[in-house]
Design a protein around this nucleic acid. Structure first.
Length: 278
DNA sequence: TTAAATTCCTGTAAGC
DNA sequence: TGCTTACAGGAATTTA
């Protein structure tokens, strides 16, 4: 699943190849993946635009486009569960589940492929997309210097919900999904079902430190390819080989050897160690 | 306001 | 072998 480290990897890889390129053609094959505006307008607005920057916010890839007077126009890509945003030569063979193709002025193509179609493409200014309810108000970036243990504590200590449910809530922290929520709880030795308002400052400090280390390590390893995640070149990441709990239910805890527990929490499969995580 | 449940979607794997 | 069923989950939507 593409979470913060996976999306960051794609954005970092694409940036030097896309900045300065102009979109000369846009073909939407599965209109449902274009959530804003209507697919015809999406294509018409996109063609002729130059890409000025490629960044990430939460799990969203943001392509800043030229031609706007005040607030920049953004092409926004969210990969959902199985989305892939690849840069290929126009001659590259096409795979199935290809829903949108953008051709650039250097002849290469940006292709959006998504088997389960949980992902989406958006076009508009940030204000426009937020107002239209297409782009949620996201919480802080967990790797931003302003995201401190104290600020995380302030966001958690009033909430009477399982810790993991809040880690998955993009308005609390942006960019975490099931993989890194479970992994950060394990590294911080916190049980995912602990009610957030029972966490001490010290425990939140461990969580904050674990999150920072985990996400930086995962980015350095180019993300986790546990399902269909691939980078912009179609290559797998390496972080899945380092995951300590995700996908390891029933297998021995790497710290104490006890079999890892599996429960359903916040609608998600959750793996943790009953001995190491309190 | 908050928390939990439901929905979308299809490939994969388990079970009979 | 072939069929049915459960499962995976991000986030919008609905319900409580």
């Amino acid at each position: 699943m593409p979470e913060l480290p996976e999306v960051e990897t794609v954005a970092l890889d694409l940036r030097p190849h896309l900045v300065g390129r102009t979109i000369v053609r846009c073909e939407v094959r599965h209109p449902a993946v274009v959530r804003h505006p209507a697919p015809e307008r999406f294509s018409a607005e996109l063609v002729g635009r130059r890409i000025e920057a490629v960044t990430r916010r939460g799990k969203y890839i943001l392509h800043r486009l030229d031609g706007s007077l005040d607030e920049p126009m953004l092409l926004v890509v969210h990969l959902g569960m199985t989305g892939q945003w690849r840069l290929v030569s126009a001659e590259a063979p096409e795979s199935d589940h290809l829903h949108a193709v953008l051709t650039l002025d250097d002849g290469r193509q940006l292709r959006y492929r998504d088997v389960r179609r949980f992902g989406r493409l958006l076009l508009g200014t940030e204000a426009e997309l937020v107002a239209a309810g297409k782009l949620p108000r996201l919480g802080p970036e967990p790797l931003d210097p302003g995201f401190t243990a104290a600020s995380l504590y302030r966001r958690l200590h009033t909430r009477r919900a399982p810790l993991k449910a809040l880690l998955l809530d993009q308005m609390v922290v942006a960019g975490l999904g099931n993989i890194y929520a479970d992994e950060s709880c394990f590294r911080a030795r916190l049980r995912p079902n602990r009610l957030a308002n029972t966490l001490s400052r010290r425990a939140v400090g461990r969580l904050h430190a674990a999150l920072g280390q985990l996400l930086l390590e995962a980015i350095a390893n180019r993300g986790s390819s546990v399902d269909s995640y691939r980078d912009a070149w179609g290559e797998m990441g390496d972080e899945q080989e380092r995951l300590q709990v995700y996908g390891r239910g029933g297998e021995p805890c790497l710290r104490c050897g006890r079999p890892l527990s599996v429960v359903r929490l916040a609608g998600r499969t959750t793996v943790f160690c009953r001995r190491c995580q309190r």
